[in-house]
């Protein structure tokens, strides 16, 4: 499948915080329908990398192409349009606290996409139904459990019809009992063919679905490859060490 044009291509993305280089020349390209999973120790640059990909954090260097078109960061309007095509799921959900579940999903459809309120409402209800939360649509975030909040945030991202989704440790802030309901939703979205880049410590779940693992440490991509290779036959000792620890902790599906 070498002739496929990658849906997203990132070249040499670099980010400094003060004199600390938190992301070093990270390059990655992903084809339509693929799932790439970022693994690595906390503070290794996974979040920064994901946030640089949709420019929530401004990379100091690096280029990025979506569908073969380069996104020029200086053009604000282009960034706003680009971000609509890139769904983002945060570790701590970040639902809009003053809006009900329904309005959380609806607001960007109306205010950003310019949809009519009725049409946006129908779409929002459809997406909430898809994540199994239609009956909770009138609840405020403060009235939802962590797992429910994360499912609403997935519905909110899906309603925008993104071409790719970035998931930044979507289950890390959840009670163990709530993790599976979120993973089930992610699995559903994945089986509908959504392209995704996800950082996670849920190594078992990730290895069952990912096309490729990307091991990041100290801001550098150390190694990439299919899950079974990274987990069991990694080239670098550091990758092997991390993977053996994390499989011990979170289990695996092989």
């Amino acid at each position: 499948m070498a002739d496929k044009i990658p849906i997203l291509r990132i070249e040499n993305m670099t980010k400094w915080y003060g004199d600390k280089e938190v992301l070093k020349d990270a390059s990655l390209s992903i084809n339509k329908g693929e799932l790439k999973v970022l693994i690595g120790p906390s503070g290794g640059g996974k979040s920064t990398f994901l946030q640089c990909i949709n420019f929530l954090v401004k990379p100091d260097r690096g280029r990025l192409w979506l569908d073969g078109r380069e996104i020029v960061r200086a053009r604000k309007k282009e960034i706003y349009e680009y971000r609509q095509k890139v769904g983002m799921i945060f570790q701590d959900f970040n639902l809009f606290d003053h809006l009900t579940a329904l309005h959380n999903v609806r607001i960007a459809l109306v205010r950003v996409k310019g949809m009519s309120k009725g049409e946006a409402r129908d779409r929002a209800i459809l997406e909430l139904d898809r994540v199994g939360l239609k009956s909770y649509m009138h609840q405020y975030p403060a009235e939802l459990s962590g797992g429910q909040k994360q499912r609403v945030s997935i519905a909110r991202a899906l309603a925008m019809d993104p071409e790719i989704m970035l998931l930044d440790e979507p289950t890390s802030a959840l009670d163990p009992e709530l993790i599976s309901e979120v993973l089930d939703v992610i699995r559903d979205v994945r089986s509908d063919g959504m392209t995704m880049i996800m950082s996670t410590h849920q190594i078992g779940f990730a290895s069952e679905m990912a096309d490729e693992f990307v091991f990041l440490e100290n801001g550098s991509i150390v190694e990439t490859g299919p899950p079974e290779k990274i987990l069991y036959k990694a080239q670098y000792a550091r990758t092997r060490e991390f993977c053996s620890k994390i499989t011990e902790l979170y289990g695996n599906s092989f």
């Binding site: 706003y80 809009f96 205010r111 950003v112 909110r156």
Partner: peptide, 12 residues
């Protein structure tokens, strides 16, 4: 997180 979520959705 509120502003990040808004920006990620394409809000100006």
């Amino acid at each position: 997180g509120q502003t990040m979520a808004a920006q990620a959705l394409g809000f100006s």
